[in-house]
Write a protein that binds this DNA or RNA. Structure first.
Length: 570
DNA sequence: GCCGTTTTCGGCCCGACTGTTTTCAGTCG
């Protein structure tokens, strides 16, 4: 198992144990271990190869967890996990996804009302039985009803990061099979959609049997749902479904185009073909019986008199108006990263470590932006500690070569629309990102007031993760994007695409609107550890889904130009 | 479950908020 899969298993175990009323500190130990494993630079299997005791060196991992992690890493199995899974109905675990419900409340619902599924819960809440429970009331009952759809949704789709990783891993092992010529990811994962409902792989193979056998036995696969000559449908242990299709080489482009979608994009494609007296399907583009294109995607688009359209744009959201090939931003275009944390607040890396991590990720400049004091749980900084932190950053950057470092702050926009730090402190910052963390459920007028107040503050350079959403688990704040974007444009405030795959906020649609208004976008990692910069890729693909080019993204500028942009906007 | 001892147990990050209570448990980040 990969590190993030091990981390997911440990997190699931923690959830289950918590529901079973296990000691909270024991549960925390599992969660801490999950985080530790997730942020390791090397795969656990590699560490174990180097030394069988390597895991014991890690903070927060003792004999017991080391043994469990090593079992997960080498066999993908953990008896304890299977055991507790059998004790808790899956529907009960899903209830944890309902905002406002934690393990205690869910356990009460499960035990007292015998609700085992989200449907059970909905029925109980509708009947008013939830409000009668001790510790529950009318408001809780109402918020449960509102949150159920969110939880149900979360169960059906997975984050793009989870989807891409599983798909790439399986594609890699299929590529090693004798006779397999080519394997590619298709579907929403190829379009880098925020979430994926299932995975699609496409292969060229002399003999489909060997490829399908390999897939059946893959450690990530739990069961084969269906298997035919050219198509195999499996379910992964993580609950995601995956389709593998084996196609002949001459049809590969057509199949790739077809199975990449989206459905809406393909409807238009087939209509355009029809208008030219052609027929498009997964086998090729045909005039009568004769195949006129289909070995590669480019030939299909070209025959339809279209430039090749990057997968991220294939949503029928205006991509057919493209006259010429569009040169979307690439991951390598980013030179800076303007949002990250250190051990001063809730990060895992020191200032020096984050600088080195950024350098290793190929970045030329960064801003260190720890939390302001309102985020007490993260040990947020007040004016005194922040100034001290900046002094420390300043002395370190004096000695640092090859990468520029800005003294920044991620400053909370408080519930009353004031900022968490006084103006005279913000004025000393090189870079200020203002964000909403609390009070996301306030009425739209209040959210608007808060965002506009932040934008109008002369020291604020950027609004970070504007909606505060966590995909699948926390709904976005209700934002009037029209006034919000207009204000950002008027006051020269940049907007962030937060690259954390659970955020991707601004979303693709609002990012496209920001581009139209020529509001500079910055794509930031929001790193909390030295390997956190890898997520920038997800932010870049989100930007690509919005049609952004290098010129639309401010942190593709060199440092001097970026610095000038900040100065000009202030 | 981990860790570090005043070394085999006792503590483990915490402040604010919400909705429930009538002094606080649970949730959030």
């Amino acid at each position: 198992m990969s590190n993030s899969q091990i981390a997911a298993a440990l997190t699931e175990l923690a959830d289950l144990l918590e529901l079973l009323g296990e000691n909270a500190f024991r549960v925390r130990a599992y969660r801490n271990a999950a985080r530790t494993i997730e942020s390791l630079p090397d795969e656990v299997t590699l560490l174990l190869d180097q030394s069988p005791h390597a895991l014991l060196e890690l903070e927060g991992i003792g004999k017991d967890l080391a043994q469990k992690i090593s079992s997960l890493a080498t066999t993908g199995q953990l008896d304890q996990l299977d055991e507790v899974r059998s004790q808790v109905p899956p529907g009960v675990v899903q209830m944890l996804k309902i905002p406002g419900l934690g393990p205690k409340k869910v356990a009460t619902l499960w035990k007292e009302l015998q609700v085992n599924t989200l449907d059970d819960l909905q029925a109980a809440a509708t009947a008013g039985r939830v409000a009668e429970l001790k510790g529950f009331g009318k408001k809780t009952e109402q918020s449960i009803l509102e949150g159920i759809s969110l939880a149900a949704e979360a169960g059906r789709r997975v984050l793009i990061s989870i989807a891409r990783e599983a798909a790439e891993q399986i594609a890699q092992s299929l590529r090693k099979v004798a006779g397999v010529e080519r394997v590619e990811i298709a579907g929403s994962a190829r379009r880098w959609k925020e979430t994926c409902g299932d995975l699609d792989l496409l292969a060229i193979a002399a003999d489909s049997t060997t490829a399908m056998d390999e897939l059946s036995q893959h450690p990530l696969v739990s069961q084969v749902v269906a298997r035919g000559e050219t198509k195999q449908h499996v379910r992964l242990k993580s609950g995601i479904d995956l389709d593998l299709r084996v196609v002949p080489p001459e049809s590969f482009g057509a199949a790739w185009q077809y199975f990449t979608g989206s459905k809406e994009h393909n409807v238009v494609m087939r209509r355009l073909a029809q208008e030219k007296g052609l027929k498009l399907n997964e086998y090729g583009l045909f005039r009568g019986e004769e195949m006129v294109a289909g070995t590669d995607e480019e030939s299909i688009y070209k025959t339809l008199e279209l430039p090749w359209i990057p997968p991220e744009l294939r949503e029928n959201r205006g991509e057919f108006h493209l006259q010429a090939p569009i040169d979307l931003i690439q991951p390598g275009d980013l030179q800076g990263d303007l949002h990250m944390h250190t051990t001063a607040t809730d990060g895992a890396g020191s200032i020096e470590e984050m600088i080195e991590g950024a350098r290793a990720a190929g970045l030329k400049y960064i801003a260190i932006t720890d939390h302001s004091k309102r985020v007490a749980m993260a040990n947020g900084l007040d004016s005194v500690r922040l100034r001290e932190h900046w002094r420390k950053i300043d002395s370190i950057r004096q000695k640092t070569r090859g990468i520029e470092v800005l003294c920044g702050i991620e400053c909370d926009i408080l519930e009353d629309a004031t900022l968490d730090l006084p103006d005279d402190v913000l004025a000393e910052a090189d870079w200020v990102i203002a964000v909403l963390h609390y009070g996301l459920r306030q009425p739209a007028e209040m959210i608007e007031k808060r965002l506009l107040a932040a934008i109008q503050n002369p020291h604020v350079d950027c609004i970070g993760h504007p909606s505060g959403r966590l995909i699948g688990s926390r709904a976005p704040a209700e934002i009037n994007y029209h006034t919000f974007l207009k204000a950002a444009q008027d006051y020269g405030v940049m907007l962030e695409i937060n690259a954390n795959p659970a955020r991707l906020d601004l979303n693709d649609i609002q990012s496209a609107r920001a581009k139209e208004l020529r509001i500079p976008i910055v794509i930031n990692s929001d790193s909390h550890h030295i390997h956190g910069f890898q997520v920038l890729e997800y932010g870049v693909h989100q930007a690509r889904r919005a049609g952004l080019t290098k010129a639309d993204v401010a942190n593709t500028l060199d440092f001097a130009s970026f610095r000038n942009l900040i100065r000009r906007n202030r």
